[in-house]
Design a protein around this nucleic acid. Sequence first.
DNA 1: ATTTTTTTCGATAGACCTATTGAAAAAAAG
DNA 2: CTTTTTTTCAATAGGTCTATCGAAAAAAAT
Lengths: 204, 204
Amino acid sequence: MPDGLDRISRKKEKYRRRQVEVFNAAAAVFAEKGYHGASTGDIATKLGIAQSSLYYYFKSKDEALEMVCLEGTKGYVERLKVIVESSLTPAQKIRGAILSHIQPIDTIPDYFRTFTEELRYLPRSRRKMLNQMISDYNKLMERILADGVANKTFKTSLDCHLAMLQLISQCNEAPQWISSKTGYNLEEIATSIADNFLLGATRR
Amino acid sequence: MPDGLDRISRKKEKYRRRQVEVFNAAAAVFAEKGYHGASTGDIATKLGIAQSSLYYYFKSKDEALEMVCLEGTKGYVERLKVIVESSLTPAQKIRGAILSHIQPIDTIPDYFRTFTEELRYLPRSRRKMLNQMISDYNKLMERILADGVANKTFKTSLDCHLAMLQLISQCNEAPQWISSKTGYNLEEIATSIADNFLLGATRR
DNA sequence: ATTTTTTTCGATAGACCTATTGAAAAAAAG
DNA sequence: CTTTTTTTCAATAGGTCTATCGAAAAAAAT
């Protein structure tokens, strides 16, 4: 006779796994058609279930978008924080940060794309946590650059804030370079972004 | 008694001017809410007219999006072609190309944003000409880079295709850096993108 | 002032979409 | 096998949206 708590948590686990399938489908449809272009009917069709069944797994389409965005950015800040606080050189930190940033393009492309392109359609009330996360993330990235300048690794003339925006923008656009028939892989792309930046920014 | 043709063209001109106001409103609403998030009612409200009145100026919402995208890219390829075929140095061409690319962010921001973010929602049939235009544009930009390599201005190791994608991506994301409270102006941004690229790519 | 042309409007058909609800089906437990 | 719980479904209320149409209003021409 199995333990009662075990039984309950096993049930919840089953529910949670199905929920992940639902969010996977939502992410795929959001990424393909955009949040407003995607209907809950589209998501249901992708899963082969009735549209109304979705509401057993989320309360509203808004909530589904929030969940997809949260899942798509899970661990982002933490991974960058580890890099920032490591004992790597500024140049190595940049390489690591870029690679870490674009990794999800491989592992969870639909979540990544939904986050970068559809976040703006989240109602203000749901966007607070995610905006805070983005702000934290940007500050961390900028800190790597500022440390590099303080360090005399990077040129004094480097505008850290602008450079941060340029690096992150390139990372966020990278998914579109892959579909662009030329078959770059993510590591090539990360290396290229980092190389091009470091070649220009590094003191000689 | 005015010439007949004159009278007709003057009327058409009046119609055309009102149509521009309509497309301006459409571009503004598309840019703010996204194509699918924007309703024709939103556009009409912005103009202070009835929703049904819009259909005197365009046949469908799709067509409005197409017109906005076409207007937003008018002259793009031509301007770049002039730069490519000029006698400027590759480095000067890059500076000119970047400045030319982001100019519309100042002059017609809503058209620019709608083009870069909402083009994907144009039905395939309407997207052909615009896709061709983008392809031509990218090739021209890549040619500047390839010429610079052939020229020994840029390093042999430069991946021209990837570098082209990186430059254009940065330009297309630039609007978001401006709203980002820090008050950069477009020329600063263009200079920064060009400097950072040229510093790394130029032979020494 | 009257006629013609241009522009706007109200009403609405016809789709589609989100979210709810109570019931049915499926799965798990007893 | 029966009961309980979980999961799915059909039906639908209530809302929004695009596009059409004939009429009205406004402007221009005669």
